[in-house]
Each structure stands twice: as C-alpha cells, then as structure tokens.
C-alpha cells in the first residue's frame, strides 16, 4: 500500500508542482492586493470603456446608469449595483466594493464601476 502510494506520488509529481505553483501565484496576488489596499474616494462609472460619471463615496445616493440598465448605490463609503437588466445578475450578487482598484463589471450591459483613490487617480494598476 505504502509502495503503491509512493509510486502514485512519483507519477503525479510534476502535476502537483504545476498545480501548486498556479495556486501559489494566485495566493501571492491576493496577499499583495490585501496588503496594498486603501479605502477609495470615488466610484468611476464606465460604459463601453468610456468614463461617463464619477461619484464621491462620501455622499450616499442612488444613480441609474446607462439609461437605467443598471442602478448604482453608494452607501457608507461603498458602492454596489442593486439592479441590472441582464439575465445573469452577477453584478448585483457581487456585493459592496470600497477599496482602490476594486471593480464590478456587468459584462452583458458593458457597464463597469471602479473604485479610485484621491483625485480619481488609480494607484494600484
């Protein structure tokens, strides 16, 4: 049994190295994101890659976007979508974002919200 296990480990050795390195890369990326994160100041709304609006995270509000296909809510320093006309509703389920560089993308409607730092300058990416 032990021998069989050893042979198995031998067989899958390169596999394990490849898989663990992919996971490691993602974990390192998460750590870097976590360590460098900063509270954002503005929510920048992009439609088709063009910035259409910027809202300060300091003042709460409800903003229809892109002629009403999505509704952005700003509340207590965070931003989230509470309505999307698309069938998947992934952007609604994504929840609140508040740190610089965080984003919610509604792929079907091509609407994005990105959190930026002071003066709208993106320090992270």
């Amino acid at each position: 049994m032990a021998k069989e296990n050893k042979e198995k480990t031998q067989k899958y050795r390169i596999d394990i190295i490849v898989i663990l390195s992919v996971i490691l890369v993602s974990l390192v990326a998460f750590c870097v994101m976590e360590l460098t994160r900063k509270e954002g100041e503005v929510a920048v709304v992009e439609v088709n890659g063009v910035t259409v609006a910027e809202y300060s995270l300091l003042s709460d509000g409800v903003f229809p976007i892109n002629g009403g296909t999505n509704v952005l809510v700003i509340e207590g320093g965070a931003a989230y979508f509470n309505y999307s006309s698309c069938p998947t509703h992934t952007c609604e389920a994504r929840g609140k974002i508040r740190y610089v560089g965080e984003r919610i993308d509604c792929l079907p409607n091509r609407v994005s919200v990105v959190i930026r730092g002071e003066g709208g300058v993106d320090l992270v990416s």
Partner: peptide, 20 residues
C-alpha cells in the same frame, strides 16, 4: 468588450477557482 483592462483584477480569483 468592456474597453478597459480587467485582467489584473480578476486573474487571481480565476487562477484559484480555475485550479481547484
């Protein structure tokens, strides 16, 4: 499609979920 680079933001999540 979005006209803006989202690769650097989503890649860590996708690498992790993709490998699992």
């Amino acid at each position: 499609i979005l006209g803006t680079s989202v690769v650097q933001y989503y890649l860590p999540y996708l690498l992790l979920s993709g490998s699992l």
